[in-house]
Nucleic acid binder design. Sequence first.
DNA 1: TATATTTATACCCGATCAGGTATAATAAAA
DNA 2: TTTTATTATACCTGATCGGGTATAAATATA
Lengths: 70, 70
Amino acid sequence: MNKLSQFVKERRKSLGLTQEDLSFKAGVGLRFVRDLEQGKESLMLDKVNQILSLFGHELGPIPTERDENS
Amino acid sequence: MNKLSQFVKERRKSLGLTQEDLSFKAGVGLRFVRDLEQGKESLMLDKVNQILSLFGHELGPIPTERDENS
DNA sequence: TATATTTATACCCGATCAGGTATAATAAAA
DNA sequence: TTTTATTATACCTGATCGGGTATAAATATA
């Protein structure tokens, strides 16, 4: 479970949507939403963006996680 | 040409690397680097991250570009 | 408890990506 | 200019993603 999957899961729940609801609204398959929330690494960029757009977000390069305790 | 492709192209050049150099260092095919820099939308998430990691970055959800002039 | 809802996992298959190669176009250097 | 290096585009193929479906597990509700 990575940051992306956590982000999606949290946003989805905060909107009171099921995975099925989200897949429908985003126009992707239910299986894709599941793979995403389960932290699958090999996903199509554009499909992920279809989902993130529902949350007003998109994928972009961000500095790699620095260790919090350093 | 989107933000991601611009980011990669700029970072690559700032390091004085050719697309071929980058593809080798990242462990992806040359064709992939080209598709990426050309702004292809349908790319594999993990492959993109292989490249971004060389720049100390990774893909993550960012707020969708708000219009600068509003 | 039992029942319904939601989520997780596994399989099959068409569509498509990534790699490889070749060729063309562009840019840089001599 | 010619030559070289780098980038862009097109084709072919194996591998794999995403959709659909089914089933199981987990969670919530009565």
